[in-house]
Amino acid sequence: MTAALIQARDMTVSHPGADLPVLSHVSMGIQPREIVTVVGPNGSGKSTLVRALLGQVALTSGRVERARGLRIGYVPQRVHIERAMPMTVRRFLSLPTRVSDAQAAAVLERTGVPGLEQRQIAALSGGQFQRVLLARALLNDPQLLVLDEPTQGLDQPGIVAFYRLIEEVRQETGVAVLMVSHDLLVVMRASDRVICLNGHVCCEGTPQVVSAAPEYRALFGAEAQGTLALYRHHHDHDHDHVEEHVHGPDCGHHHHHREG
């Protein structure tokens, strides 16, 4: 196993004033070239996990190790841009590292918003802004993309194109991707590994493993049935991944997989 780009060890995070930790004893890592998706209900701590990995929130215990000089392209779940600051899309793409006009034009083309350079950021639609954020994250050859609900506000073709783009970029540059998403069906198809979060890691593993896991089905109910159906025919034949099926605390249960 190569060295992880980013690795959390037994990480616990509490927000000030709250008695229960938002995340308890989370351990996880991201390898180069890997697409990892975090799923979980609202308030389950997905954004907190992402922010803790990036060093944006303090840990109560545990630690996070980041590869030295790691270049991260980040798209937060919510970005507030101060309206008092005039800012064109072109200028925004050059923050904090300046890029050439050609690079800016190319990346906007890729994310489906060509020719937007001279528009004010504050005057963009929600979906356009989301695409510009993604474009900025893709610049400067990142080793890891961290995307918190990156498809929010995108139209349906936009969502499909988004996942295709991520896969393409990974093929080209070998970038690793950590993504938070609610598009369960697409996630299951687009990820190498899925982490199911609910204050702790409930279950994790390949999409096949997670979609069959009882914890996952307990969390997502009917929607999980859909993703399970997607994999049911695989599951009977594919037991290589069972050892990757890791259980978090409070998720103890008996394995229902037939031994192969």
Binding site: I72, Y74, P76, V79, E82, M85, M87, T97
Partner: peptide, 18 residues
């Protein structure tokens, strides 16, 4: 560049090592 980035959005700034 750092001052502008940090003024636009602190979260983006931190992710960029600022």
């Amino acid at each position: 560049q750092r001052l502008i980035t940090a003024s636009v959005n602190e979260e983006l700034a931190v992710a960029a090592g600022i």
